[in-house]
Each structure stands twice: as C-alpha cells, then as structure tokens.
C-alpha cells in the first residue's frame, strides 16, 4: 500500500462516517425502528446511495472509462444465511460494524469498548472455524463475482433504470402513501 492509498482510504472513510452520522444511523433507535418498520431512514439512505452510485458508475463502465473492482461473490446459501444471522445481531444491538465505529467517533464509548471487542471476538471465532464449514458452504450455488445484468443477460442501462423505478416507487409509497407503521 502506498502513502497515497492510505490518505485516500482515510479521506473516503471520513466522508463515509460523516454520512452515517448525518443520516442518524449511529443511533440504536434508527436501526431498530427500521426493523419495526416505524422509521424507514435506513432503507431510504441505502437505496438512495445505491442508486446514486449506480447512475454514476455504470455509464463509465459501459463507455470503457473504468473497470469495476472485485465484485462481492454470490454464493446463494452463504449470502442468505449470513444475512439472516446478521439481522439478529443488528436488531439486538442496533448497530453494524460501520455505524458502531462512526458512533464511537461521536463519543459513544460503549460502541467502542464492548462493541469493538465483540467485532474482534466475532472475527476471531470466524477465522478459527473458517476451514470447518466455509469452503463447503461457498461451493453451494456459487456464481462468483457476478452482477445481475451479466447473470440475467440484460442491458446494464435497463437494469439501472428498473432499479431507479423500483427505488422511486418505494420512496413514493413510504413518503406519500404512508407505508410506515405508527409507533406504539
């Protein structure tokens, strides 16, 4: 890693943490109320971010100006089971690794001490048990670093357009049609 990469990672991280803070995702209430469906902030924040990046990146890739970095691998059962386990911890504690670190920066030291120790313990347990189940799990329905347009043989512009329509429809339903539960 060159010095330039270090500086770049630091600066990008700062903006990332800043966005998490401003969206309010560093709060237990915001995270758990997404799962109670009484506050749709997390959904709106994530979908807006995905859409913005897609609209910026796919045309550049199609025009051959950039190449995508390594795309996160699709291995159906692992991705899904991982998500299922992840949701339990996230709804219990009201954080995920990124929001806990940003929240720690805000001065919430219970995010830093038990939170960070928890992440490290989880990572150690995973690493030590890796060979006992992961190689087998990763093999099931593994499509590698694929994108949906490649997998389904559809035009990437069309895929981004459909994603945009779905996101905007979701925002409309939440903001205008009251697709949000009232808090008890």
């Amino acid at each position: 890693m060159t010095l330039m990469t270090y500086v770049l990672a630091l600066v990008l991280g700062v903006f990332f943490g800043f966005a998490l803070n401003k969206a309010g995702l560093t709060r237990y209430t915001k995270i758990v109320n997404q799962f109670r469906l009484t506050d749709m902030t997390v959904m709106k924040f994530i979908m807006t971010a995905l859409l913005t990046t897609m609209v910026g990146l796919f045309p550049l890739k199609m025009m051959g100006i950039i190449k995508f970095p390594a795309i996160p691998a699709t291995y159906v059962v692992g991705n899904l089971v991982g998500g299922l386990v992840f949701g339990v911890g996230m709804a219990l504690a009201g954080f995920c690794p990124g929001t806990a670190v940003a929240g720690g920066g805000e001065g919430k030291w219970d995010y830093i001490v038990p939170g960070l120790l928890g992440f490290l313990a989880g990572a150690v347990i995973f690493g030590l048990s890796y060979t006992s189940f992961m190689p087998q799990l990763v093999k099931i329905a593994n499509y590698g670093g694929v994108t949906l347009p490649e997998l389904w043989h559809i035009n990437p512009y069309l895929a981004v357009f459909v994603f945009a329509l779905l996101s905007l429809a979701l925002f409309y339903l939440i903001d205008r049609m009251g697709w949000q539960r009232k808090q008890k």
Partner: peptide
Amino acid sequence: RWLLLFVGGIIVEFAAGIAGGCTS
C-alpha cells in the same frame, strides 16, 4: 447494554464472515 453490544458485535461480525461482507 454492554453485554448486548458485545454479543451483538460477535453475531454481526461472524455473520459478515459467512455472507462475505456486512452492511457496508
């Protein structure tokens, strides 16, 4: 709270390992 944040942290990080990444 400390216990739940610690346990939650373990679950979340272990799950991220299985899935190939976390929310970010």
